[in-house]
Design a protein around this nucleic acid. Structure first.
Lengths: 349, 349
DNA sequence: GCTGCTAACTAAATCGTTACAGCTCAATGG
DNA sequence: CCATTGAGCTGTAACGATTTAGTTAGCAGC
């Protein structure tokens, strides 16, 4: 027995005495040949252990791979563990699966210069939450379809939620109870990395297009309306949406003397809010009596524990679905803004 | 100006008056041509907007795509949200990134008959946690490297943790306090789907190779040693490692009359244990005074809340790293079992 | 019997690279 | 001065499919 190199469509054709075109058709266009012959071909294929047309060759010829790449702003390690990113991926995967496509995971960090590995053969790119300053999109093939999620790319469709109105609404709700000292915990708002309190004069991210900035505007509008001096409202910043990074910042602010500690925390994500909740409990602070807390995102974890989190629910799964449908050309590619929902929990009733 | 079809390596070669082989070398083997010429080629490439060799064509020619597929037992939606699977993915991604490979996500569910999309062009497959009964591996290209994680595939390397000893150890610890009525919550142990109590005579998954089965053996060994009648220890089963699926089962068992309710719950995952913790608290049961709870996995969430979870810590990230290194051929492919660590928290001190 | 039409198939031209064998020419060694 | 080397480059055959433009054969219609 020879070392038996892999069987190709050509071998199959020779074996059966038909042309390669016909064998190809047997697999791809059943209507192009008699059912009879098709059966013979498929049978012989099975007999010889031919597993269907080679994907690499096919992709060269057709120009398509049926692979969609998802580009995540942060490292994969981080993104995969982030509940919101996970939901987004779920939505994307759901649609891709249903249409015979597969999902390639890619971190923006790994494309500093050039696309790694097979990333450049994706049929399209869904890009999630880059900072506007990052022009990491340069290495992406300029021709291929691209959909931006939670940020904007010039000339490309993007998907957002109504961050500003949502944050206005939740802050308005929170401020409807008397509040001595509201505080805000931001996610990645400053131009330079910073974990901790933001001094009043501190330079914030200039671009208006960051979702963090829109959310902050919403908070400010409500604070302003409620008669608070927004410039005097203390703010803290966290660089990453993880317990590990948030905890020290929040611990420090909770350990402030009673008359300096906020009695309301407007948090820019549920992860931040949940961390605050945990640390507050650990210090014997009662939520919501001593400290009220609001989040943003509506992740599942926030609803499983007592007190349930008061938050803004955004449908990240749907966001993923929409992005995927656009990339596959199932929906018209056009920018859109999804509605959110105010969820009243027990952390800020 | 013509519609300017995409620029190829050949165009570049013609333009410069060199051979395609040389242009190819300029990109792939700098040592094969003079630095001088290489600069000229790269310069011209930039000028013409040539973005380097086409990945699809290259993959056909070289036979490699630099894509590694990760096959997950459950749906992507579920797997991505599962803390343990996430950690595994993190470890895999870390190594793949470092070596210029990318990660393709694939659910076993979507390969019932045939590999979708570009999945069949992966250079290797890391398969995670399939049930032994599922022979979903059939559609995978038999030649390509494969590493199994948390289960066994005949003739292929696999990675495990020492489930049996670990569960023996944690159960032994738990039983060192007087225990009236221990209970066990299993994850996917029965042959037929079942959410709820497992009747004593119920047919369990036969194969020894499931991790769930090994863990159960460990529990039984310790129970036996402590003088409990293992056949009489009540067991419950949950079909999926999510709060939503676990909650009703656990709620039912916690609502048993005081003299039937377990005072120790040996849970097969942290997710189960955490759900039990939440529901117990909500009922005013004190942990660990009224109910002691142990988990398995050592996920981060278990350590952030009070009481901290007593559990077995397995390093899933490392598991991913090892799998990835084997698939890339950086390490010898050989089956191995990783050690675990007993973490004493407050849920079962 | 001729035309026209359709179903079923084939031959050959790509798709854009990389690998391999060879070729040329200047430098080196004896 | 000739043989040997090696650096630097070229030509061309794969890689394994899909697609386009035919070619046949069979049959219906007039």
């Amino acid at each position: 027995m020879p070392p038996s190199r892999r069987i190709t469509l050509k071998d199959l054709a020779r074996e059966l005495g038909v042309s390669t075109a016909t064998v190809s058709n047997a697999f791809n266009r059943p209507d192009q040949l008699s059912p009879n012959l098709r059966e013979r071909i498929l049978g012989e294929a099975r007999r010889l252990g031919y597993r269907g047309p080679d994907a690499k060759a096919r992709s060269l010829r057709t120009g398509r791979t049926r692979i969609i790449a998802v580009v995540l702003a942060e490292s994969l390690t981080y993104s995969i563990n982030d509940a919101v990113a996970s939901e987004l991926l779920s939505g994307i995967a759901e649609v891709l699966d249903a249409h015979g496509h597969t999902l390639l995971l890619l971190s923006a960090r790994q494309m500093q210069n050039q696309l790694p590995g097979g990333a450049s053969m994706a049929d399209g790119y869904i890009v999630y939450g880059l900072m506007p300053s990052q022009d990491l999109l340069e290495p992406l093939p300029p021709q291929s379809p691209l959909v931006a999620v939670d940020f904007d790319v010039e000339g490309r469709p993007s998907i957002h939620v109504d961050d500003e109105p949502a944050c206005y609404a939740i802050a308005r709700h929170a401020l409807s109870r008397t509040t001595r000292r509201p505080g805000i915990i931001n996610l990645r708002l400053t131009a330079e990395p910073c974990n901790g309190p933001i001094a009043p004069g501190r330079r914030l991210l200039s671009a208006d297009q960051t979702i963090t900035r829109s959310r902050l505007s919403g908070f400010y509008r409500a604070l302003d309306e409620a008669g608070h001096d927004t410039a005097a409202v203390p703010m803290w910043n966290v660089e990453e949406n993880t317990y590990e990074v948030c905890a020290p910042v929040i611990a420090a602010l909770l350990d402030l003397p009673d008359d300096e500690r906020p009695d309301l925390l407007l948090c820019m994500s549920d992860r931040i809010a949940l961390t605050a909740l945990t640390l507050a409990e650990r210090r014997g602070l009662r939520v919501p009596e001593d400290l009220r807390i609001t989040g943003f995102d509506g992740i599942a974890e926030g609803q499983y524990r007592a007190p349930r989190l008061t938050t803004v629910r955004q449908d990240s799964v749907e966001k993923g679905r929409i992005a995927a449908r656009m990339i596959l050309g199932l929906d018209e590619p056009r920018s859109q803004t999804l509605a959110t929902e105010l969820w009243l929990g027990d952390s800020c009733p």
